[in-house]
Structure formats: structure tokens, C-alpha cells
Design a binder for these strands. Sequence first.
DNA 1: GTAAAATGCTATAGTCAATAGCTATTGGAG
DNA 2: CTCCAATAGCTATTGACTATAGCATTTTAC
Lengths: 146, 146
Amino acid sequence: MDGYENPDAMEHFPGYVLRRTAHAMMAELAQRLAPLDLRISECAILMMLGQRGDLTSAEIGKVLDIQRANMAPMLKRMELAGLIARKPIDGRSMAIVLTKVGTARRALAHATLNAFEAELMSRIPARHRHHFMPALYALWKPAEPD
Amino acid sequence: MDGYENPDAMEHFPGYVLRRTAHAMMAELAQRLAPLDLRISECAILMMLGQRGDLTSAEIGKVLDIQRANMAPMLKRMELAGLIARKPIDGRSMAIVLTKVGTARRALAHATLNAFEAELMSRIPARHRHHFMPALYALWKPAEPD
DNA sequence: GTAAAATGCTATAGTCAATAGCTATTGGAG
DNA sequence: CTCCAATAGCTATTGACTATAGCATTTTAC
């Protein structure tokens, strides 16, 4: 295989290859989400809200691993874009809910993600394909049973 | 499997899982390289220079996909750290070479990378393990023969 | 009622990558 | 040789993302 005789001395290292691959994929996904005026993190928030529409900022951040401080400007942007609304739960916490516009945008985003997912998997040779996600899971969440 | 019933609506999407996994790995690798005062990109440069010690800034950047403009401050930092030296080739281009310190640092980095690589692969269940790198290659460099 | 924790937020700084633009050198065409 | 395009290295700037510290309010526990 050609790749192993490349001048790039890092091509043997899974960590490096993982980084380069992820970067390439993220760039491509970002490009596909750009027409929807969504960044990847915002898209993830929309997807979460599509499953359960009464999440708080803290709950979203916990699942997506985004810190509270960084959720604030992101949600502000999404609110200004008319995608979400805030409903007070109690004096300190707010439920984040999808607006009508947000629900529609979420459907578009979902379609985009599905298409992207299918295309990505199709690029992996069949004999490796179904091993890919389990391998990623094992690295991402080592405690998960497999 | 538990992961598939998680509140994270993105866990089915390879792009997202790839991103999260890469981020987790990069954080861990960065931590391991920190004692060597090396960032991941700098480490990659050292590894390249270990294979061929007369590369120019532009050549390195081309392989590692780092733009000329972003190579400059990086090389400056490495030069100040005493890892590399610049030798003029002609009036406009400079060969980047490892110093003695840089050569020693590269050996340490290489050992760190090897240990990390082995540990990463060991985390992947055996039946998925040898499919991982080929799958990444297929995504990263779709044109590569497989 | 008071102390501790939780929630949302601002402000700030650092990393990383992308773009535009500058200077100087090289190399080829006239 | 002169002119001009391409190359090489660099600065400065911007934008996205992340991490930290700190503040105000509210809830919860004792």
C-alpha cells in the first residue's frame, strides 16, 4: 500500500491519522451545513432538541461536552436566528425549545447528516465498514461494553 | 449496547463520533507531549525531520497540511526552543534541520508516540482492531488504493 | 435562616486555522 | 540585460472553538 511509504512520517500513528481524518470530515460537514447557517455544534443541539424539547442549557452542554460558559453565546446566536426559544422552568433555569423555524431547520439538518453519514460509510471498503463505529466507540468511551 | 440508547442524538453519526473521538485522543496525546514541551504539530515536524533533515518550510507544510503563514510562528517557536536550525539553501529558501537537542527530543517524542499508538490500538477490541487504520485511510485519502 | 450547590451569564485568554498582503529571490521570455 | 510571473518566507488579522475565572441569582440542604 502506497500510504505507508509516504514522506509523512506520521501516517503510522493512529492518533495523528485520526486527527487528520476528523479534520477533513469536519471541514466537509461544515461546508454542507453552511447553507443551513448551522455550525456543527449548533446542529448537534438541534438534533438533541428534536428528541426531547425541554432540555436546559446545562443538560445539553453535559451531553455534548460544551461548557456552560460556551453554551451561552451559542444559544444566543440560535435564539437570534429564530431557531430556539427559552422558557423559564424556575427562577434560575430555562427550558430550551425548538421554534417552528427551528423544527424545520432540524429536519433539513437531519437529512443533511443522514446523507453525509451514508456517504462516509460508503467510502470505507465493505470489509472494514462495520468495524469502524465500534472501534471509534471503544476509543471514545472505553468503559462501554462491547 | 448502551451507547446506542444514549440521550446524545448524535451518536449514530460517524462524523460526530469521529470528531468526539479525535478530540478525546488529541487531548490525551497533547497531555503526554506536554512534558516534552511539544505540541502535536511540532511533534509531527520533528518526526518528518528525523526521516529527511533537509526539508524546507514549504515542503513540511505541504505534507502536514499546514499553510506557509502558519508554519512561520511554529518554526520560530521551535527554533527558540533550540530544536531546529535554519540553513540557507539559496537566497529565498531555508533548509530546516534538527539540532542536537532536536534530535534527542525527537527520540523522546517517537517513544511517546509509539507507546500511545500501542495503547490506543489495545483499547480497540481485537476483532475490530486491524480494520481501524484502513477505514481511516479510506476516509482521509479516498483516492488511495486499498 | 444560613451555607452550599446549581444555573446562567460575562469577560478574558489561548489555540488553531484561514486570508490578505508584503518583501525578496529565482528563473524564464523577450 | 530587463521585465514579469512564480516561489519562499513572513506579518498581521480574523474567526471559530475552547478553557478559566468570576459574578448574580436561585434553589436546596442543614
